[in-house]
Design a protein around this nucleic acid. Sequence first.
DNA 1: ATTATATGTTACATAAAGTAACTAGATTAT
DNA 2: ATAATCTAGTTACTTTATGTAACATATAAT
Lengths: 107, 107
Amino acid sequence: MIKFSLCPRYEIAFELLGKKWTGLIIRSLLDGPKRFSALSEIIPHMSAKVLADRFKELERLGIIVRNVYPETPVRIEYCLTEKGKALQPALDEIQKWAENWITLDPP
Amino acid sequence: MIKFSLCPRYEIAFELLGKKWTGLIIRSLLDGPKRFSALSEIIPHMSAKVLADRFKELERLGIIVRNVYPETPVRIEYCLTEKGKALQPALDEIQKWAENWITLDPP
DNA sequence: ATTATATGTTACATAAAGTAACTAGATTAT
DNA sequence: ATAATCTAGTTACTTTATGTAACATATAAT
């Protein structure tokens, strides 16, 4: 009997996207480079601790780069790489799905 | 100043996909209905506890249905709804991204 | 020296996931 | 009748991930 199994690359992709906040961080950065404080405002329920963790992991995986501008006060921007930008079609499809199938609770 | 913010439906979509194992479970079910033990074999590192939790949540969200066949021994199948099947394009794009950008460690 | 600002870090608390043993209900074997 | 088997979970307990709020560091302006 042939056993169905998942693609290992797909599994690795979901080690990333299957973590809380990651999909929101990357989508925010598709809009353009952003700094730490800006991301914190865009995703207010995410703690600074987790944002720092995610930035480190995304940088390690080559999905974002950290750019330091020694102004005053210092400005640090996080920017998607080609690998990161290449996630846009996938995240756009999730957006489409959400618009078609998610109903918001009435306020 | 206009503040960039994320689509609430997209955020809800990632409350789902941003949980460990969810993306793998749904992708497996796109292949056809499957039972508890089959999923456990397809995703061997996932515990039965979490699989039971995910099945309950996915059913609550209307993404899967649980079908009971009173054979002997009992057979229970989990099957994607239209809402669940509609995730296929998104997961296919993640698959494409993974094939283009994820390199596997050499064995 | 004091203040201000951005970018984080740290210590501690709670929630989520992992592990391994166990349960329930329905056959089937002894 | 009792024990063994099978699927589909559950339970008690441990470990990991995330949340919270206070603190640290670097730079420059006052």
